[in-house]
Amino acid sequence: MEQTDRSSRIAWAALLLASLIAPVVVGFDKYLIHVGIIISLNVALATSLWMIWSLGFISFAHAGFMGIGAYTSALLFTKLGLSMWYGLWLGAAMSGAIALVIALPLMRTRAVYFFMASWAVGEVIKRNFAYFRDFFGGWDGVFNIRAPKLDLGFVEVNFADRLAYYYLALFFVVLTVLVIHRINNSRTGMIYWSIHENELLAQHAGINVFRHKVIAFTIACALAGLTGALYAHYQTYISPKSFDIWKSEFALVHVIVGGLTTVGGPVAGAISLTVVDELLRATGYFRTVFFGAVLIAAVLLLPGGLETIPGRLRSFFKRSDK
């Protein structure tokens, strides 16, 4: 156990180091840095979805809450002129607040029904962005959402520069993953997994299941909102279509392919599948077909997901030692 812990710590450190020096490795290729930013955002989204999963359910409203964060930050910028430094936190807060209110009735539903009800929630959120045209801009969306500047006194960093934005996104992704990792490894995390394993038993053991579910859902949605704000200021344009069901589904797919039991799963899944999608772009017509094939193959041939690879390798080498 201790050895696993140490090697996983080494793996995390290596990943962090790799992502820090990645721009240098790719020779500051602007396009690859863009891919890096997309990977970061996908990792953040998938990880926060995984946090909900640690309680045993899956939300299809995740893209919707990401949208709430994105729209809050974007409208604060375009209507009130407040920069992303406000939008990030207010977007997350707004997303969390709405999640809290919705979670109260939503948590009455269970298992598959939760899944479906959350899908309806996500769809209504998206539809509202389109329906209230005067406020949210309708299907037209919101344009000119600029990235912020940071005056450090001796130097001014303009995050419209892609490299700067990469490190900004990386910072918040690391923050998101760290927060979720800490919660997961704490006593609260154990409570979550006990709810995941057996809700009824957890309830009888004196755990307030409902409260834990609502709080975890709120935190995860607030983190999704934060990701949404980062997304909006990077893409500079958002519309209701940016937050449709497919976004939630792809986040879910990242979690499944990566692995369901550790926080490393969604991280690995989001990184690898985003890279695969990017590699497939040049295949034109076949892009979607190939992506679907990769997805099915990953699920069928690698049960448990990417997170099981280290364990598999270890047992493989142990066997060959003998």
């Binding site: 899956i58 589904e249 879910l252 797919v253 979690v255 499944i256 392919v257 369901l260 017509y285 076949f286 892009r287 979607t288 077909v289 992506f291 679907g292 094939a293 997805l295 099915i296 699920v299 069928l300 049960p303």
Partner: peptide, 16 residues
């Protein structure tokens, strides 16, 4: 979730 992921993959493959 695994069967869900497989059927999502099927959606992508069959429609494309």
């Amino acid at each position: 979730l695994y069967s869900l992921a497989v059927s999502l993959g099927l959606v992508l493959i069959i429609s494309s």
